[in-house]
Simulated scan of single mutants.
Amino acid sequence: MNQLGHLKQFRSSVPRKRSMGRRKIEMKTIDKEPARLVTFAKRRVGLFNKANELSTLCGAEVVILLFSESGKVYSFGHPNVNSILDKFLVQNFLPEENVPKIMEESVQGTKNSQVVKHEIMTELLSKVGVEKKRGKALDQQREEETLLGGEWWQGPIEDLDLPKLNHLMLSIHGFIELAMAKANMLTLGTKNGCK
Rank of each mutant, 00 (worst) to 15 (best):
L168E: 08
K50F: 06
T56E: 12
L94D: 04
K136A: 12
K136T: 05
R11K: 03
V128F: 13
G155D: 09
D31S: 03
V107I: 10
R22F: 07
V62R: 04
L138M: 13
A60D: 11
T190V: 06
T39H: 14
D161V: 01
L147A: 08
S171D: 05
G129V: 04
G193T: 12
E151C: 02
F93N: 04
H167P: 00
T110E: 10
R134S: 12
G77A: 05
D31I: 05
W152T: 07
L186E: 15
R43E: 15
L162Y: 07
V62Y: 06
Q114R: 11
F88D: 02
A51P: 06
I84E: 03
G135I: 01
Q3G: 02
R134Y: 09
F76P: 03
S68V: 02
T146M: 13
K24S: 03
E145K: 04
E144Y: 03
Q91R: 08
T190Y: 05
Q91E: 11
E104I: 11
D139V: 05
S68P: 02
I172W: 02
G109C: 08
E131V: 02
V90Q: 02
K182D: 11
I25T: 07
R44Y: 02
H167L: 14
R36H: 07
G135L: 08
V115R: 11
L54V: 14
E145A: 06
L125V: 09
V63K: 00
E69G: 04
T122Q: 10
E144V: 05
V38M: 15
G71Y: 10
L4V: 05
L94W: 05
